[in-house]
Design a protein around this nucleic acid. Structure first.
Lengths: 211, 211
DNA sequence: TAATGTGAATCGTTTCACAGCG
DNA sequence: CGCTGTGAAACGATTCACATTA
């Protein structure tokens, strides 16, 4: 019965479903009971057709006459995509960006517990005030393994990114989000996602060059 | 002669080309003269075929026997994608994340001048130490217009994101990078890109649910 | 009737295979 | 010969059109 979501959901659909899910959380808080695919699409900027197909990858949930029941659709997506599982995460690199991530409430509110922070500068570890436990960088593998941390957020300078990733992977990390512009090599079973601010700016630049 | 890059470069190719460009900058600094598509692919994790096709969208530059000349390919991508144009940017929302972005050196080093910061809290404007000029949020439209700022980086809470975007757009902004989880509506001629940390974590979670 | 769910058509990207050049 | 550049084939995602159902 626990529909072990066969990874047959195309990546773009997955991304949209996550957007839908988070919108549904908000709509539920606002007391909305029901919503149609076109209304969802209007709010999120997707085509209603896409949303319907995305949802249908997870099985049927809608009411043919009158859209989707908000709580039902939300629960459906949540269960199918495993969003109800809480994950432990850590941050490596406690500069401005790393510190910001360390204290980013949105993560906690969405089921991600940041339970460790790392930096190679002992000085930094002593001066930062946070409720998260801090460790020197050479303890990354140990701490990740002992605490069962699954997700690593890398906010170190580019030149230190690969080495950082290696330590995380050695500790048994499952996924990495890399904020540095460096390219990270990882085993196939460790998923890496890059958040590249400069790259995003360049995409804007390129697309806007028609000024 | 200035090859007004017809926007016939597919979006995925564009993203790859930007990665290649930044790698080439690094390789050039390291003194490398020449590189093949397969070597580029190995480093960046792309298929050599893709890289060759991506590059070919911009015209021919390679040497048929021996790969690409680093400086030539770099200049070629730069010119075609308009990466040599410097852009003015601003940051709205000077919490931890916004402050980190305000002082993010990688942006400056890649041709993006952050020339203004905004926050609705006067108190915050007075306590932050930065070399960037700071303004209260109600001056966004004015400052953007007067200074000719093209890119706006939004790091405000979700509930304030749309309103912030409106002010930027009223001031004539050309592109927005939105770090908040909120969905932003903009005119078709204003490009919006979203950087969604929680969403990225959820994509990891979903893909890793096979633990 | 209004909206879902879904095969079929369409569109865009990637991969393949190889001709062409240094 | 090695590697680029590129049509053609394969693949995957989106959009369309409509049968289906409360």
């Amino acid at each position: 019965m626990p529909n072990q979501a066969k990874s047959k959901v195309p990546p773009p659909s997955l991304a949209r479903l996550l957007s839908v899910f988070r919108l549904l959380e908000q709509l539920e808080r606002e007391g909305l009971k029901s919503i149609s695919s076109s209304e969802l699409g209007k709010i999120l900027g997707f085509k209603p057709d896409s949303i319907r197909k995305d949802v249908s990858y997870l099985g049927e949930v809608g009411n043919f006459g009158g859209g989707y029941e908000v709580s039902k659709l939300k629960a459906h997506i949540c269960a199918n995509l495993g969003l109800d599982v809480k994950r432990k995460a850590c941050v490596v690199g406690l500069g401005r960006l790393g510190s910001a991530i360390l204290n980013y409430d949105d993560l906690r509110e969405n089921g991600y517990s940041i339970i460790a922070g790392f930096d190679s500068s002992i000085n930094k570890l002593e001066t930062i005030t946070t409720s998260v436990e801090l460790f020197p960088a050479h303890e990354i593998s140990d701490v990740v393994r002992k605490k069962g941390i699954e997700i690593g957020l890398i906010a170190v300078p580019a030149r230190a990114a690969q080495e950082t990733a290696k330590k995380l992977i050695d500790g048994g990390i499952r996924g990495i989000i890399n904020f540095s512009p460096a390219v990270i090599k990882a085993r196939a079973d460790v998923m890496v996602r890059n958040i590249d601010l400069v790259g995003e700016c360049m995409i804007l630049s390129t697309t806007l060059l028609s000024t």
